[in-house]
Amino acid sequence: MDSVAHRLSAVGAGAALELRGVTRLFGALAALTDVTITVRPGERRAVLGSNGAGKTTLFNCITGDFPPSSGTIRFFGEDITQFPPYERIRRGLRRTYQISALFPGLTVQDNVYLACRGVSRGRFSFLRPGQNDALMHATENLVQAVHLAAVKDQRVAELAHGQQRQLEIALALAGAPRFILFDEPAAGLSPTERRELIEILTSLPAHIGYIIIEHDMDVALRVVESVTMMHNGRIFKEGPPREIESDPEVQELYLGGGHE
């Protein structure tokens, strides 16, 4: 292919995230098979599927926690397939974890501060931040945004489950995210906390797109504009929420008996 045309096609597509033929093997087991997805900047999408459908593996491939066995991943036109996780994060990709992955020995504020520091300069700074440090302000704002100001000096190990989930989200919002992967953010939350979560998600700036893995259809369909169904490591169906919801195959597989 002509290199100019090639580059134009990459730019012209203007995709925030573009996966082409991504496959991930664990030994002989294929957790993902030939997954091709294109997500526009600012687009909000849900990935649905039963347990073992490959949703979290998809996230791990995108963030580089596990590199894909084959296929390419582009982030805003740039080929990031071979990048280590931290290089992807520094380019504006973010994620949360299904099981809270926080720093239990540190305080809430330190956790958020680390997230802010991770995507800015001075990661190796030997100087403590002063009171007027810009990152300290960013930290304060984030802590407020996820309603954790009251517990900001507590160690994370002492937080309630719902608070830990909120902190997960705060970590993903640090810096200037361009695209976020939410892995079951509503798991184990109370109805009130779910409402707060939906509020946080819908109030994100319009340019920030995300993919959300969510079993709770009420949450998922309220915060996305498109849905990707996965089954056995493959893309099974894509489309707007209403269409997917009423699709008979999907209903049989997932919304009906397929879901535990």
Partner: peptide, 23 residues
């Protein structure tokens, strides 16, 4: 300081630190 905090983060969960942009 940021360096020390990050080191403690690496100690607790190095994979998560990579997902925050640290090496």
């Amino acid at each position: 300081a940021p360096f020390g905090l990050a080191l403690q983060g690496v100690r607790d969960n190095s994979r998560r630190m990579a997902a925050l942009g640290f090496n």
